[in-house]
Design a protein around this nucleic acid. Structure first.
Length: 943
RNA sequence: GCGGGGGUCGCCCAGCCUGGUCAAAGGCGCGGGGCUUAGGACCCCGUCCCUCAGGGGUUCGUGGGUUCGAAUCCCACCCCCCGCACCA
């Protein structure tokens, strides 16, 4: 960190430069960054996204806006307590991550078993990093989402959302961890990522006075059932299920009790006990024997499987194994099995009568334990479902497609109470806490009703009216709005705010972060204890944020002074709506769209957000960021190593649009050096300059600077921070280099003017260096609150720009020529265009643009001997913009420009350069080439 | 699979919506030169191929098409990234 960074931080702080108060009549900009989650330190990904917000904030401030940039910390949710719990259980990977990746001192980690402490530690170190990076934040408005006042705000929000009908109750299956008493999302899993509950059919086979209940995804294959499978060593039970006697695996009995069934286990036993008995199949009434199947997983569905060997590869191989005596010691059982023949019930093109055998043989599967059976099953299931036809032995379903028959079979069995359903995970899922998960049907959960079509429409309108950057992200919002279903907005465990009407539930993280920006507008009163959190009743928020009720009434109700209430109300009205919210693009399908939904639900259009902006994610040295692989750089580490300005600049230059940004240490080092060189460059250039009248190069520099200011400004308006800095830093520098190279006597006044604006253009990106340079250049006041450079101070000058362009063109062309001519030459003659050729071109150009008679012009200039097609072609060669500029700078004198620059050309090209004007009599023209010169196309002759 | 975004000259990337100014900006890397006691920084030149008169050839994921003309428009295909939910 450069020494001056600390200094300026203090100055800004003492002057309370970023503490924003409403100023009546002054235009405002309210910019926000989604509060970061405090289960770890802020990293450079946060820094990237947040830096873009600060760049915009500083830019708008310099443009004369009253800017509010607040900050807060997200503590809500289960992740923080979860980490504390794992640490307390001695989980080494968690401890290691704290110590080695996050860089937490060992002493502190000891205390992380307390979730509050963990979060407060990260909040503390993160706040320091944000402050030292020079973010122009109004810290008086800071809060954490567990603060009592904030909880009051969330309570109010959910009461109102519920009244408006946006919060509804529902019953849904979830993946459940018994230990956590909580649904287990993808991120909380040790095993089974991406697995979600599927609906299995339970078919009831008559067994004595009760039922043997088999699970299946293919109930339509009941017509091909030949037997049932039980794992001989599996744990089964007889249980009372909703008043019936069921035989299922023991684990199934437990799971069923979580799925709205009343279950009482009566007797436990091993699967082998039932082998050889006979059961009666539903619908078909067939008597089927129970066989041993070692491939049966008693943890999956009911642990009872009915066998369709013709169409299920597992069943086919299980039968073959048994017939070969591999899976039973009982001769009787083997003999019984040998009598079983596969029953073909589905015809499908490309397969024989027993498709399961085809699949097995195709894959060379030898026994029922072969894992290739999974593929075989999947492929055959898919093929039969889409292309299979039910055969004549399928009762009333013959000739139907399998996909059509399936729901009808289900219905038929349901009518006879022979089928019910069960939610099950098709694969093992294990929670991070080590507990095996199962499906629980959660009752009376609270949902945000995002599937409401009217709400969707309103939210789309909100997005349509907003500015959305970059443009390419717009489609994503719309498809998210369409795609979003009801969202469970409350959970059983974790930190956060309880639902005011149902204290069993805590508002989850994505649902308590939707309209909280409104809370910033008043929170400084609470932090200053002007208002006590106990006073924040729903009526207070109604008044402050929705304008409901009279202030006298609310004052009486809450005990808050009426005048203060009025101030707070005005403050909200002044700052709202949010002018810019910038986040990483991964937040579009959740947070940013939720943000839009809730604003459309709660607020009038005048308070709807007006700016949405996203950027890509961050990569580190070309790799995806990952704590577990230690591909991770904390904000603080980067800040300490490179300093605030270099950090900000590196990130700003890393990417635009939705492209992912690659953090490279090398780039940060380069930027650090570049910022140092900036000081040297500016100071040396000023030292070497003199006061004098402006010449054409001064006019050129002002003119190009005009364009640079314009480019930086328009880029920043649409959050193209990379392009903005690229122009502000690199292109301006290139302009200055050219000026200093061309200009024998750099003019002090010009440099002061340009440097003055340059450091202003850079100020949003590198605020510390800009302040420091301003001070060293004798500037008054603070640059952070100075005016944004005005293009009015930099008049454009087409003639000056075009003439410099001519110089560079001539140098490039001449270099090219000198490169290919190997002979030694001593002198370069340059023939600038004749007046005739120039007016020929200009008149022809104008004739074309203004619809004049080109033939007339061509006739008029026939005497010059210049072929008209060359002049016409020239317009295309020069291009539209240059041709227009040439026309605009009609009086532009190429000969004068080039001869004035002949000394410069000579030194640049390393050869004596003499300039002549074509068409003048008596010029030195031994090769008779001068007549070929056209505007912007001088002719060369080497000798 | 579904939805969104992309594939440009060693690398990062601008350009594409609004076709011609595009062998294609800028940064990095690399080669050469200057400055310097030296290194770094800084400054200049070069960096697709060929070319002794400013020219030519082949390029913008692949293959077609539209057009006088395509990196830019249309069609098909291939590849990469992001998201896909009870979670930050």
């Amino acid at each position: 960190m450069a020494s001056y960074e600390k200094y300026w931080l203090n100055v800004w702080n003492e002057k309370r430069l970023f503490e924003s108060e409403p100023i009546t009549g002054k235009k405002k900009a309210f910019v926000t960054f989604p509060f970061p989650y405090m289960n770890g330190p802020l990293h450079i990904g946060h820094c990237f996204t947040a830096t873009r917000v600060d760049i915009y904030a500083r830019f708008k401030r310099m443009q004369g806006y009253n800017v509010l940039f607040p900050w807060a910390w997200h503590w809500t949710g289960e992740s923080i307590p979860g980490m504390s719990y794992r640490l307390s259980q001695g989980d080494e990977s968690v401890r290691k991550a704290f110590l080695e990746v996050d860089g937490v001192p060992p002493k502190e980690v000891e205390r992380f078993v307390d979730p509050e402490y963990l979060a407060s530690y990260y909040t503390r170190v993160s706040r320091e990093a944000v402050k030292e990076t020079g973010f122009s934040v109004d810290w008086r408005r800071e809060f954490r989402t567990v603060d009592p006042a904030f909880k009051k705000f969330i309570e109010w929000q959910y009461l109102r959302l519920r009244e408006l009908g946006y919060v509804v109750q529902g019953t849904h299956p979830v993946v459940w961890c018994k230990r956590d008493e909580s649904p287990t999302g993808d991120h909380d899993r040790m095993e089974g990522e991406g697995v979600s509950p599927e609906e299995f059919n339970l078919l009831k086979f008559k067994l004595g006075g009760g039922w043997l209940v088999a699970g299946t995804l293919r109930p339509e294959t009941i017509f091909g059932a030949t037997n049932l499978w039980l794992h001989p060593d599996g744990a089964y039970c007889e249980a009372d299920v909703d008043g019936e006697r069921w035989t299922v695996s023991l684990s199934a009995a437990n799971k069923l009790s979580e799925q709205q069934h009343s279950v009482k286990v009566l007797r436990e036993f091993k699967g082998k006990e039932l082998l050889g008995t006979t059961v009666v199949a539903p619908i078909t009434g067939a008597s089927l024997p129970v066989f041993p199947g070692t491939f049966v997983d008693t943890e999956l569905v009911t642990g009872v499987v009915y066998s369709v060997p013709a169409h299920a590869p597992y069943d086919y191989m299980g039968l073959v194994d048994l017939q070969n005596g591999l899976t039973s010691d009982s001769l009787q059982m083997v003999e019984l099995a040998k009598k079983v023949k596969p029953i073909s019930i589905i015809s499908i093109q490309g397969y024989s009568d027993v498709p399961a055998r085809d699949e097995v043989e195709k894959r060379g599967i030898m026994n029922s334990e072969d894992p290739k059976l999974d593929d075989a099953t999947a492929e055959l299931y898919k093929a039969e479902f889409h292309r299979g036809i039910m055969k004549e032995n399928c009762d009333g379903y013959r000739g139907m497609k399998v996909s059509e028959a399936k729901p009808e079979v289900v219905e038929a069995m349901k009518r006879q109470s022979l089928l019910t359903v069960m939610q099950e995970l098709p694969q093992r899922v294990v929670c991070k806490c080590g507990t095996r998960c199962y499906v629980k049907i959660l009752e009376n959960q609270w949902f945000l009703n995002y599937s409401d079509p009217a709400w969707k429409e309103k939210t789309k309108t909100l997005i349509k009216r907003a500015n959305v950057y970059p443009e390419q992200s717009l489609e994503w919002y719309f498809s998210t709005i369409d795609w979003l279903r009801n969202w469970p907005c409350a959970r059983r465990a974790g930190m956060g705010t309880k639902l005011p009407w149902d204290k069993e539930w805590i508002v989850e993280t994505l649902s308590d972060s939707t309209i909280y920006m409104a809370f910033y507008t008043i929170n400084h009163f609470i932090n200053a204890e002007t208002v006590k959190f106990e006073q924040l009743s729903p009526e207070v928020f109604d008044y402050l944020l929705l304008g409901k009720g009279s202030e006298a009434h609310v004052a009486k109700l809450s005990g808050i002074d009426a005048k203060l209430l009025n101030n707070m109300r005005n403050e909200f009205l002044y700052w709202y709506p949010v002018d810019l919210r910038n986040s990483a693009k991964e937040l579009i399908p959740n947070h940013l769209t939720f943000f839009a939904f809730h604003h459309s639900a709660m607020f009038q259009e005048a308070q709807w957000p007006v700016g949405f902006s996203v950027n890509g994610m961050i990569e580190i040295e070309g790799q995806k960021m990952s704590k577990s692989r230690s591909v991770f750089v904390t904000w603080r580490q980067a800040l300490e190593k490179y300093g605030a300005d270099a950090l900000r600049a590196t990130l700003a230059l890393a990417a635009d649009g939705m492209d992912d940004a690659d953090w490279k240490a090398k780039n940060a080092e380069d930027l650090q050096v570049k910022i140092e060189s900036l000081f040297i460059f500016i100071e040396k250039s000023l030292r070497d300059s003199t006061r004098r009248e402006p010449d054409h190069l001064d006019r050129w520099l002002l003119s190009v600077t005009h364009r640079r200011i314009q480019a930086v400004t328009t880029s920043l308006e649409i959050m193209r921070t990379r392009r903005a800095l690229s122009v502000a830093l690199l292109e301006v520098w290139n302009d200055l280099r050219w000026y200093l190279r061309r200009e024998a006597e750099p003019r002090r006044e010009t440099l002061e003017l340009v440097f003055g604006s340059w450091i202003r253009l850079l100020s949003p990106f590198t605020p510390f260096a800009s302040e420091e340079l301003n001070r060293r250049m004798g500037g008054k006041g603070l640059l952070s609150s100075a005016d944004w450079p005005s293009t009015e101070d930099f008049p454009t000058d087409d003639a000056a720009e075009v003439s410099e362009l001519l110089i560079t063109t001539v140098i490039d062309d001449a270099r090219n020529l000198l490169k290919i001519i190997r002979e030694e030459k001593k002198k370069l003659n340059v023939y600038a265009t004749s007046d005739d050729a120039k007016s020929y071109f200009l008149e022809l150009y104008r004739a074309q643009k203004e619809g004049g008679n080109r033939g007339e012009v061509i006739k008029k200039y026939a005497r010059t001997g210049i072929k008209p097609e060359r002049v016409i072609k020239l317009q295309y060669e020069l291009g539209e913009e240059l041709a227009a500029r040439l026309a605009a700078a009609g009086g532009f004198d190429e000969f004068a420009t080039l001869s004035r620059a002949s000394g410069f050309l000579s030194s640049e090209l390393g050869i004596e350069v003499t300039v002549y004007k074509a068409g003048e009599s008596g010029i030195h023209d031994p090769a008779k080439k001068a007549a070929g010169a056209l505007p912007f196309k001088p002719v060369f002759y080497l000798e």
